[in-house]
Nucleic acid binder design. Structure first.
Lengths: 257, 257
DNA sequence: CCGATGCTTCGGCCGCGACCGAAGCATCCC
DNA sequence: GGGATGCTTCGGTCGCGGCCGAAGCATCGG
């Protein structure tokens, strides 16, 4: 009786706890939008059942929906959703000791580099995050409360230094423009496979977006894993000073426990 | 049919999704151990029901149990569990816009400073984390894969510099001894209220422990919130160079959205 | 040794929620 | 307009799992 009211997080966890919904969410973890029918097939349920699940997920604001003609496209509501799921995966991943030999190649690729909603994760994402932090491009959030008005939802968690603006300009990213977006600016997101944060938020999305636009990285059709191109190898070395090919190969190798 | 096997994280989320279990976990978020009977009362269920829940949570390695006489003490299995729940709270917290006026003081105190499993969180925890990072006491994890043997579960995510060892010696913390522990050494943990990582792992626990031992901080009986003592105000200023009273007051003020 | 206490296991009850088929709208194409 | 496609709502079934009371072990106290 001390506090028998249901905690808020329990309702969210229950949403994530159903197998069908979990499959839907996992499929959307790459940030792409999918139709209700596609998601029904992925979840292995009929269209009515999937519709019910999707309705609940939208009501809980875990998913957002865009109606386009007779199709309805569902996607994750934000990177915070993806971050929470990554965190759950980190918690669930180490326990069962599955020893699945057969899909080691797949998980290896996922560990090397993948998308987490709209930003980069895996070894590649962590390397970029660490590099920006180490070079002083990203500063760990003053939280300057001296002046009032600290709306805790709006202000970014990292700030970008002058050096950071310079570096990101090489990627043709306008930091000020990103900061003007109404979303989280630059937030750490606990990485499922590396157990260290990578960069989420608008800035993380901008970096990932430029990597795809420039052909540095390619999305794989049915996986969150990304492929590094030769141009990407050069570009990432030039901008971030990281040996992406070596890092990603090392992460892929160490796929098993 | 693309991938209709249940994702691992769904099972964990389902565990967290039951109201009774969620209440149990929330009660254990302060890192203290409690008996089965206490937890049954907190969850609002009878002893047999609680026993079933606790058994499942232990089987899933979310909880660990210590038998002592005829009592069995349950506690969170590790800081990663606490981190995941914090992440879920962050996801669940912003949506419903609860506008609970009556317990604003409570959430204010929680935002100011609280325990997260065995380490400090809230504004206080974030301040310490940031300070250590800013002063170069904590270095963001090389992840040196050059040599083999990178057991991803064992190595810490932050490393402590010489300056850090010096600073922590002022707290009578032997960094080498902490590093020898079989647990995560120093990991960032996403803070529920501040949306920025604080310091988890053995080092975070050691810092929190010394703060309690020296009477700098007091645990409140039925809350995760901590109270700053005058000695703590002085000590934290001396060791970390932070104005804890001012920071915590500011965080408590901004409790509402 | 006996009763009290703490915790667990065992059956059985019961309700929530996932699931499906059928039907109802909306949209697109011919 | 008519048929096909995509999605949702509506009833109804059913199984999983939370819940409790009673009983079974263990431990502590006298």
């Amino acid at each position: 009786m001390t506090g028998s009211t249901e905690p808020h997080f329990a309702a969210v966890a229950a949403l994530l706890g159903d197998p069908a919904r979990a499959n839907i969410l996992r499929a959307l973890m790459d940030g792409r939008a999918r139709t209700a029918k596609e998601l029904a097939a992925i979840a292995g349920v009929t269209a009515p059942t999937a519709s019910g699940h999707l309705g609940k997920l939208v009501a809980a604001e875990l998913l957002s929906v865009l109606a386009q003609g007779r199709h309805r496209y569902y996607r994750l509501a934000g990177s915070l959703v993806a971050c929470t799921i990554e965190s759950l995966m980190a918690l669930a991943g180490e326990k069962p000791l599955p020893r699945h030999r057969h899909n080691r190649a797949l998980t290896g690729a996922l560990r090397a580099g993948r998308t987490c909603y709209d930003h980069l994760a895996g070894r590649l994402g962590v390397q970029i995050h660490d590099r920006l932090l180490r070079e002083g491009c990203l500063l760990p959030a003053l939280h300057d409360d001296g002046d009032g008005g600290h709306r805790h939802g709006g202000d970014g968690d990292y700030t970008v230094s002058a050096a950071g603006r310079l570096l990101l300009a090489k990627l043709e990213i306008d930091v000020a423009a990103v900061a003007r977006q109404k979303r989280g600016f630059a937030r750490p997101c606990l990485d499922w496979s590396e157990r260290v944060p990578h960069l989420a938020g608008g800035l993380g999305a901008a970096i990932a977006g430029r990597c795809f636009e420039q052909g540095w990285l390619l999305r794989r059709p049915d996986s969150r894993a990304v492929t590094l191109t030769p141009a990407g190898q050069l570009g990432l070395a030039r901008v971030f000073g990281i040996d992406a090919a070596r890092e990603m190969a090392a992460a892929a190798e160490g796929a098993d426990g």
